[in-house]
Design a protein around this nucleic acid. Structure first.
Lengths: 345, 345
DNA sequence: ATTAGCACTCTTGCCAAGTGAGTGCTAACA
DNA sequence: TGTTAGCACTCACTTGGCAAGAGTGCTAAT
């Protein structure tokens, strides 16, 4: 039960028009604007068929038609063509990214900002997940006789640290032994791996003082590892959605904003999504059922994978947004190859 | 030209009523709810006088009166009485804060969340400004032959680090010399102080290789210092304001939300405010002219000072909010005294 | 000085009529 | 058989008018 060529044309015209104007589109205006060589009456008949097949809906009897989620899905899968970015946008992107090339987190933040500036939608960018990261070394550094710093360094240069204040003074010697022990024990293992296994193990050969020190350091070690696994989330353009007619009601706007105040939940959701370009439309999202969400991934050093995304109403310019995101992720991956002498944190 | 006792009573009643119901309050309802022993007509006359003096305004001829910024100011300065917190709120606070006692940043975040949960307004909390922090030591740690970690440690155990990737390999020896040099040069100075003076100085006695290394490290050193000065900002309950009638129009709501998307700007603004409990009402704020803003400060180890704040419409329960914030900052300062054996980052 | 009474003002909610965009159907047409 | 013109019909939206209600401001009486 495929769609005829003419039906596809009409559907495409309706989508284009509706995405532009956010108003139900009628047969007459289609006939006028896009010359398909047929009269409004014919278009009406086709529209009626398209509605029956679930591609269009009808807010009320005497209104025009609105594309359904199914229509957008069809559009994204088969109708949509890749768009070329304007020279202006390209320059904007390269200017902005190169301005912060050597500061990793700032670059990521700029990427999110670029996305929302160009699309006028809400967007986000996340630093790479460090599931793959392995431990390079662990060090305990003295500050004063009761304060010390626990520092974990990953193989890609990722560092996380915690300051510890002990109840009992420690000796420099204990510190050295413990940090060597820990490094030997964990070097080369992924963070996940260590987190899963660590809590039980306690090397029995330690002397008493060392064991006490170890007892204090361990809980912090685990928490610091967890910290290290956390990705940073940057959001931008949240207030853009206030300009869209679909969020002109306060309730809708509130629901939308509330999604983003739950940062932990949101981060988890986004991490769960598959890599590459992923588009989910309306009902395909288990929450935010009247939004569409597009995510794409960039690479750091070919290994770590970070995500960027755009969130808006189902009525969005899928072609432009996906093309932009593809361009942007390519640029990011390019910037984050480690062959040149840049630096990052 | 002071206000009479009765005028104060009436003003207080109007404020109380308006804060509660968000609707212009008329003479009759005042006379009924608060028995001041006078008739509505008398109250009308007094209201008229109060309006002339600028304490009340009139949306239109036949509407009730609304308190002006000047009225709230009078209320906050002289009329307002301290409120006792409910036992429930006290328990909520102590439960929540003690749950994360040993993780500094999490505690701060919880403080912001508590504020917005109890007041139903938007709120924020910032980690302490580190203007006063002095440098304890600087260390350069090797990762691999071209990667190293620059680490700056402050006297209160604050740590910041950056990973550097060099174009040319370095030697362990150079690293040690440079980190010793830097430590000697900067130990005991405040971050601000170093930042202001640093860029010019270049100790001339270095050997060539060391000088090259130094040249690479220095820009990152400055940027890392700047990082260290940055405070973390946690916001909570932003979407609460959607429930308030003053933000029932989309435009108002948008303006409000936009304030908080400019995090850097907002942080700077808040840092500029005086320490202690500060209340600014409506026009007293140079931006957000129809909001009121209350900030208060807490102490860490008696030295560093962090801020918490609540933002809402000028119509807010100043007495309850300020009492809550006082209680909360006391609790925070208490939790962050360093005499016990806790840990923080 | 206070109060009761009354005219006046302004908002809000409601209803009815008119308008316009758009559909769905039928009958004519190529 | 597919296409089109014509027409009746539906529904949302706007406008104007009307009544109700809340509240003020003024005046005259207490």
């Amino acid at each position: 039960m495929d769609l005829s060529e003419r039906q596809l044309q009409i559907l495409q015209a309706i989508i284009t028009d509706y995405v532009e104007n956010a108003e139900p589109v009628g047969s007459r205006s289609i006939a006028k604007k896009y010359d398909l060589g047929v009269s409004p009456a014919t278009i009406r008949n086709e529209m009626s068929d398209l509605e029956e097949m679930g591609y269009l809906t009808h807010p009320h009897t005497s209104a025009g038609r609105v594309p359904s989620d199914k229509a957008y899905r069809l559009y994204v899968n088969t109708l949509m063509k890749k768009k070329n970015l304007s020279a202006m946008d390209k320059r904007l992107i390269s200017d902005r990214l190169s301005a912060s090339r050597d500061e990793f987190d700032r670059t990521i933040r700029h990427a999110a900002e670029l996305l929302s500036e160009i699309t006028h939608l809400a967007s986000f960018a996340m630093t790479p997940a460090t599931n793959e990261e392995t431990i390079d070394f662990i060090r305990l550094l003295p500050v004063d006789e009761r304060t010390l710093i626990l520092m974990i360094v990953g193989d890609s240069g990722n560092v996380t640290n915690t300051t510890l204040r002990l109840k009992v003074p420690y000796t420099q010697e204990d510190l050295d032994i413990l940090s060597k022990n820990m490094t030997v024990q964990h070097k080369g293992r992924t963070l996940d791996d260590v987190l899963k296994s660590e809590i039980i193990e306690d090397v029995g050969t330690d002397i008493e003082a060392l064991s006490a020190l170890r007892g204090t350091v361990m809980p912090s070690f685990i928490r610091t590892l967890e910290d290290m696994l956390n990705v940073n989330l940057y959001m931008a353009g949240m207030t853009n959605i206030f300009n869209l007619p679909e969020y002109s009601s306060i309730d809708r706007a509130r629901d939308f904003m509330e999604l983003f105040t739950q940062r932990d939940w949101f981060t988890r959701k986004m991490l769960e999504r598959a890599n590459g370009m992923v588009v989910t439309i309306g009902d395909e999202n288990d929450s935010m059922k009247d939004c569409s969400l597009i995510t794409a991934t960039y690479h750091v050093d070919g290994k770590l994978v970070g995500k960027i995304g755009v969130i808006g109403p189902t009525r969005m310019k899928y072609d432009e947004v996906t093309s932009l995101m593809e361009y942007l992720t390519n640029n990011l991956s390019e910037a984050f190859r480690l062959t040149d002498g840049g630096e990052d944190s």
